[in-house]
């Protein structure tokens, strides 16, 4: 029996000596009736990383996390979590993972301390360690003066920090977070991510799902999910750089007219207005994106200043989802 190793944030190196990836999945599939919520997903998450799942609602993020936690059985494919098979060794996996559900899942009619002590016992923390660990987490996540408060009366940020405390109480090797910042203001979100880096620094691997671009950008590595399929994966910076020169910005006095014109233009994938300028993503094949946009504006009789821009993660996301929709449209037309 291997006990959970203590998490000492300052002394352990940020990457543990690796014995295989923390998560490895091949062709992971989950069907509900005839609908495939997750479809042939391949995934590798190295130990010690913060890996992000980026995707809109219904893209299969929660279903994937639940399969990896052993809560849902895969319809097809295999997944190994910390070297153990999710289909057959779910109980052993549960001892080493922490899971923060999308919906708040602690007892609202118990106090902060009652909740944490309950989770500590259920997770099998030895009696001596329990108090110390609970106190440590209450201090770290700023819940000390909320100890005796009934959880139902906490604010959104406090609840989220309590949920995180409960998920890391037993010092899991792998932490699953399902849209952890959904009900939290920007300041709390920033603080929350600082906590995640602290936890990661202690050697814990983190898999976090989100639909916020700024959060996805903070991850070490990223999987972009779209209707249950893996649309792209890699380091956020690399994913953006891979778009090359395809992002163009237009500064114009008549943004609405320009947007309408560009929507119709061949070779333009998407146009979004940001304040007074337009943010444009051009087709993959185009050799001169600035030229394509300039020509389209000229043809419509509109004026504007066209410049090349640095692609962001949102462009990556738009590029992969629109490319998919185009493929589907072509397939149904054929």
């Amino acid at each position: 029996m291997q006990e959970n190793p203590p998490l000492q944030h300052s002394t352990t190196p940020s990457l543990q000596p690796s014995d295989g990836p923390a998560i490895e999945a091949h062709g992971l599939t989950r069907r509900f009736g005839h609908v495939a919520a997750v479809d042939a997903l391949d995934l590798t998450v190295e130990r010690g990383r913060i890996h992000g799942f980026l995707g809109p609602n219904g893209s299969g993020k929660t279903t994937t996390l639940r399969m990896l936690c052993g809560l849902l059985r895969p319809s097809a494919g295999t997944a190994k979590v910390l070297g153990m098979d999710v289909a057959h060794e779910a109980e052993a996996i549960r001892r080493q993972i922490g899971y923060m559900t999308q919906r708040f899942s602690l007892y609202e009619d118990l106090t902060v301390i009652e909740n944490l002590e309950f989770v500590a016992v259920v997770q099998g923390l030895p009696a001596k360690k329990r108090r110390l660990r609970v106190d440590e987490l209450l201090g770290r996540y700023g819940l000390n003066d909320r100890r005796r408060q009934i959880v139902g009366t906490l604010s959104g940020g406090e609840r989220q920090r309590l949920a995180l405390s409960a998920a890391v109480l037993h010092e899991p090797k792998l932490l699953f977070l399902d849209e952890p910042t959904a009900a939290v203001d920007p300041q709390n979100r920033r603080d929350f991510w600082e906590s995640l880096f602290d936890i990661s620094d202690g050697g814990t691997t983190i898999l976090v799902s989100t639909h916020y671009m700024d959060e996805a950008e903070r991850c070490h590595s990223l999987s972009i999910l779209d209707v249950g399929r893996l649309a792209a994966s890699g380091r956020p910076r690399r994913l953006a750089e891979a778009l090359g020169q395809r992002v163009v910005e237009v500064e114009t006095a008549t943004p609405r007219e320009a947007q309408t014109a560009l929507h119709r233009a061949a070779g333009v994938l998407s146009v979004a207005q940001i304040g007074t300028h337009l943010h444009i993503l051009v087709d993959e094949g185009a050799s001169d994106p600035v030229g394509v946009v300039t020509a389209a504006l000229r043809d419509a009789g509109l004026k504007g200043q066209v410049t090349s821009a640095r692609p962001g993660l949102e462009d990556v996301f738009v590029a992969v989802t629109i490319a998919r929709r185009k493929r589907e449209a072509e397939r149904s037309a054929a």
Binding site: C69, G70, L71, E91, R94, R95, I97, Y99, T101, R103, F104, S105, L106, Y107, E108, V119, V122, Q123, G124, A166
Partner: peptide, 13 residues
């Protein structure tokens, strides 16, 4: 109903 079962069954209980 309240979602706490999902938390409970991911523990070694």
């Amino acid at each position: 109903e309240r979602g706490t079962l999902e938390m409970l069954i991911t523990t070694p209980v």
